[in-house]
Simulated scan of single mutants.
Amino acid sequence: MRFTVLSSAILLAAVNFGDSAAAALKDVDDCSKYVLLSVRGTGEKQGPSIGFKGMISTTLKTVKGGTEYDVVYPANTDRNSTQIGVEDLENYIHHGLQTCPNQKYGILGYSQGATVALTAIKDLTGTPAEDAIGAVLFIGNPFQVRGQLTTFNQTGGDSTRDYNGVLLFTNPSIGLSEHWVISGKALNICDDGDSVCTGVDQLPSRPHYLYGFTATVQKLGAEHLVSRFK
């Protein structure tokens, strides 16, 4: 997606010189029906997260008019890493509200990316941006909240629903609020063997890295996103 900032001089040129200048202003309408904002996990390189590639691809093919944006942040263990991601995500949506007011957003967070996503939607709750958010989706969420009906395991069952994420005790307010649970917009996927979202151990177990390679997870995610943007 491309956003164009128009100066008063360009606008004046459009008025004074007619169709040719007006044609240069068409970028203002270069908006999408929806944007899937992907926030990768710790250690993944900048770019698409492996955790969401299948579900994003399926969604974009099934519901036309969408695009993807990979949130820009370090995704490392530095203290400010998460906050950098939060700022990029929020700035993207705020800018989008100004340039593409009808555009919708899906926010997808994997591991540390889930922390970024959760923090951002907490900040955006009660603002105009909340209405523009059509879906939120988390995998390997370290701030998973016990008992929420939005939590499913890797096959769509509820076996991981009664677990708190490994980091929830550090700041319970980051966990998904009931406001978002009842909104119908949220899906939280936690693999049975994932120590991060089940709170078993701070060291990620092997299943924490397998969401992107698990067909049922990608199917669950795609079905949720398609249902929210069709």
Rank of each mutant, 00 (worst) to 15 (best):
R206C: 07
T115H: 07
A9P: 06
V63L: 01
A120R: 08
R146S: 15
T151E: 09
Y105V: 00
A9H: 09
D123C: 03
K104Q: 05
T214W: 00
T155F: 15
Y110A: 05
S227Q: 01
S111L: 12
D19F: 02
L220F: 13
I174V: 15
Q103E: 06
G212P: 01
V39Q: 14
V217H: 05
T42L: 15
A132R: 01
T125M: 03
P48S: 12
G65E: 12
T59G: 12
I189D: 04
Y34N: 07
G18P: 04
V166R: 04
K64G: 15
Q148S: 11
T125L: 08
S38M: 13
T125P: 14
T127G: 02
D27A: 11
K122V: 02
L37R: 00
G51M: 05
F152C: 07
C100V: 06
P74M: 15
N188P: 10
Q148F: 14
I121P: 01
N80H: 03
F3S: 09
A135R: 03
F143M: 12
V226P: 02
G199E: 07
G165L: 09
L187Q: 01
G221L: 07
L167H: 06
E87G: 03
T67Q: 09
T151I: 11
I182A: 11
L167R: 07
F152Y: 06
Y110D: 00
S173H: 11
Y92C: 01
R79M: 12
E130D: 08
V116Y: 01
H208N: 12
I107S: 01
S227V: 04
S205E: 03
G51S: 03
G51F: 05
Y34K: 04
G212I: 06
L176Y: 14
K33R: 11
W180P: 09
D201L: 08
A9W: 14
S32H: 05
G109N: 02
G140H: 11
K33P: 08
T59E: 10
Q46L: 15
T99L: 02
N188I: 14
T160A: 14
D123V: 13
V72K: 13
G18C: 00
T62G: 12
G18I: 05
L12R: 09
N16Q: 15
S32Y: 08
P204F: 02
P204V: 09
N91R: 13
V86R: 03
S205F: 12
K53E: 07
